[in-house]
Simulated scan of single mutants.
Amino acid sequence: MSPRTIVVVGGTSGIGLELARDIVAHGDSVIITGRDAARTAEIAASIGERATGVALDISEPAGIAASLAGIGRIDGLVLAAIERDANTIRDYDIDRATRLTVLKLVGYPAVVHALLDRMENSADTGIVLFGGRAKDMPYPGSTTVSTINGGVEGLTVTLALELAPIRVNALHPGIIGDSPFWAGKPAAVLDGYRSRTPSGELATMADIVDATQFLLRNRGITGTSTYVDRGSRLT
C-alpha cells in the first residue's frame, strides 16, 4: 500500500500523540491539530519530517473550516480530541457542559464536513471517532461525559450510513493505565481498576493505537463501536 496521509485531531498529547508517532513510524504522513499554533508546530517537528501541525480548536466550530482550509488530500481522519470533566447534576456547570458537548457532538461532525471533499469516496478511507466507556460505565460526575460518548455512538452509525463507502467507526477506551492522565494516579486506585479486568491488567496506549490503525485500514468494518478495555465490562 502506498504511503497515506492521516489527520489526527487532538494529536499533540496523550493517545493522539502516540498515534501520530506510530503513523509516521509506519511510513505514512500525519497532520496533527492542537489549539496552540506554536506548540502544535513544535510537537509536529519532534515527530519527524512527515508530520505537520495545524492550529484548531474544535470547541469553536464556526472557525473549523477556515482552520483546515490548507489541508490537501487525506486518506483517513481520527477525531481524538477530548477534555476531562467532572460535572454532577447537583453542582451542574452549564458552561462546562456546553463546551464539552459542542467539542464532540458539533466539533467532530464539523471537522468531517470540512474535510470531506479531500477524502476519496472509497472503503479505503477510514474515519475513527473517539468516545469512551463512560457512556455505559458511568461514575459520579460523568453526567456530561457519559451523555456525549453515547452521542458519539449515534453519530458513528449515522455517518457510516450517510458517507458510505467511506467507513466510520468509534473507539471507546477504558482505563488506559500508562496514559498521562492515569499513570500518575495512586497505585491503590489503579489496582482497583485492574481487579475488574479478567487479566488483572489495564489497557495501554499501544492497545489504543493498534486498534485505531486497524479501524483506519480494515475495509470490512464500518458503523461499529470498538471497546478497548481489557474486558472490564465482563466483570
Rank of each mutant, 00 (worst) to 15 (best):
E42H: 14
T52R: 15
D22W: 09
A211L: 03
S13V: 12
T204K: 03
D93I: 01
A211Y: 06
R90P: 13
M137Y: 13
V78E: 05
Y108D: 07
I74C: 06
D57Q: 05
S146C: 11
L215Y: 01
E18H: 15
G107D: 00
Q213L: 15
L215A: 08
G141T: 08
S2F: 14
V168C: 07
A62I: 12
E153I: 15
P61L: 08
M119I: 10
V24R: 03
L190H: 05
V9S: 05
L68W: 00
V112Y: 00
D178G: 07
G151D: 08
A62T: 13
P173T: 00
T5F: 03
R167Y: 04
I47E: 05
K185F: 08
N121R: 14
A160C: 02
D124S: 14
E42M: 10
I166Q: 01
G14Y: 05
T147W: 06
H172F: 08
N149V: 08
R233K: 13
E201T: 14
S195I: 01
D191W: 02
R167F: 01
D229H: 14
R217G: 15
D22C: 15
G11R: 06
L19H: 03
T197Q: 05
H113T: 13
D28C: 09
L79F: 02
L234T: 15
G200D: 01
F181Y: 09
E153H: 13
L19V: 00
G53Y: 03
A25F: 03
A203C: 07
L116M: 14
D117I: 09
A134F: 15
D117M: 11
V112L: 07
G10W: 07
T156F: 02
A123Y: 12
G76Y: 02
P180I: 01
R167V: 05
I148Y: 04
V157D: 07
G131Y: 06
E83T: 15
L155C: 01
L190G: 00
A123D: 14
I221A: 09
E60I: 14
I221W: 01
A25V: 11
A44M: 09
T12W: 04
E60R: 15
R84V: 12
G16S: 06
E201S: 10
